[in-house]
Simulated scan of single mutants.
Amino acid sequence: MVDQPRTTGSYTYGGSYDPNINQPSRQTVKFLTAATIGVSLLFLSGLILVGTVIGLIIATPLLVLFSPILVPAAIILSLIAGGFLFSGGCGVAAIAALSWIYNYVSGNRPAGSDTLDYAKGMITDKARDVKERAKEYGNYAQGRVQEATQGSY
C-alpha cells in the first residue's frame, strides 16, 4: 500500500475526489472574522458611550454642588503633580548630564563629543585672535602715547 498524504475534501457521486468542495475560501474566513470582531467592538463602544453619558448626567449635579471645593483642590493637586514631574525631570536630566560628562572625561566619546571638541577649538582660535589683536592695539596705543609725550616737550 502506498502512503498518500491526507487531504480534506469530499468525494463526488461518481467516485472522483474534489478537494475544493465544502471548503470556505481563505478570504471568506478573514472577512467573517473581521466583521465579527468589528461588530462586537462597535457594540462595546456604543455601550461605553451610553454608560459615560449616563454617568455624566448623574455626576453633573454633584460636580456643580461641590465645585467650590473641587476646583481649588484640582488646581492644588495639578500644581503638586507638576512640581513632582518637574523635579523628577530635572533629576533625570542631571543624571544624564553627569553620565555624559563621566563618559567624556573617561575617553568613551559619547554622542555630541565631536561637536564639543569642535567648539572648544573654535573658542581657542578666537581667544588667540583676540589676544593678538589686543597686543597689536596695545603696541599701537603705546606708540601714540610716546608720540604725544615727545611732541609736548
Rank of each mutant, 00 (worst) to 15 (best):
Met1Arg: 07
Val2Asp: 09
Val2Ala: 06
Val2Met: 04
Gln4Glu: 01
Gln4His: 04
Gln4Tyr: 01
Pro5Thr: 11
Tyr11Ile: 04
Tyr13Asp: 05
Gly15Phe: 02
Asp18Gln: 02
Asp18Leu: 00
Asp18Asn: 07
Asp18Tyr: 05
Pro19Glu: 12
Asn20Phe: 14
Asn20Lys: 15
Ile21Ser: 02
Asn22Gln: 06
Gln23Asp: 01
Pro24Arg: 03
Arg26Gln: 11
Val29Thr: 09
Thr33Val: 01
Ala35Ser: 01
Ala35Cys: 05
Val39Trp: 11
Ser40Tyr: 11
Leu42Tyr: 11
Leu42Arg: 15
Phe43Gly: 01
Phe43Pro: 05
Leu44Tyr: 15
Leu44Lys: 05
Ser45Gly: 04
Leu49Lys: 07
Leu49Phe: 14
Thr52Arg: 13
Val53Ser: 14
Ile54Tyr: 05
Ile57Cys: 11
Ala59Phe: 02
Thr60Asp: 00
Thr60Trp: 02
Thr60Leu: 10
Leu62Tyr: 03
Phe66Gln: 00
Pro68Thr: 00
Pro72Leu: 02
Ala74Asp: 00
Ala74Tyr: 02
Leu77Met: 10
Leu79Thr: 15
Ala81Asp: 12
Phe84Met: 12
Phe86Cys: 12
Phe86Leu: 13
Gly88Met: 10
Gly88Leu: 10
Gly88Arg: 05
Gly89Tyr: 05
Cys90Thr: 08
Val92Glu: 12
Val92His: 03
Ala93Gln: 10
Ala93Lys: 14
Ile95Trp: 03
Ala97Ile: 07
Ala97Phe: 13
Ser99Ala: 13
Trp100Pro: 01
Trp100Met: 08
Ile101Glu: 07
Ile101Met: 05
Ile101Thr: 02
Tyr102Ile: 08
Tyr102Cys: 04
Asn103His: 06
Tyr104Ile: 05
Val105Thr: 10
Ser106Gln: 03
Ser106Met: 04
Ala111Gln: 07
Ala111Arg: 09
Ser113Leu: 15
Ser113Gly: 03
Ser113Arg: 06
Leu116His: 07
Leu116Met: 15
Asp117Leu: 14
Tyr118Ile: 14
Ala119Pro: 02
Ala119His: 06
Ile123Gln: 10
Thr124Ser: 10
Thr124Pro: 08
Lys126Phe: 12
Ala127Glu: 08
Arg128Cys: 09
Asp129Met: 15
Asp129Gly: 01
Lys131Gln: 11
Glu132Thr: 00
Ala134Val: 08
Gly138Lys: 14
Gly138Pro: 09
Gly138Tyr: 09
Ala141Thr: 04
Glu147Gly: 07
Gln150Ala: 13
Gly151Ile: 11
Ser152Asp: 09
Ser152Lys: 14
Tyr153Arg: 14
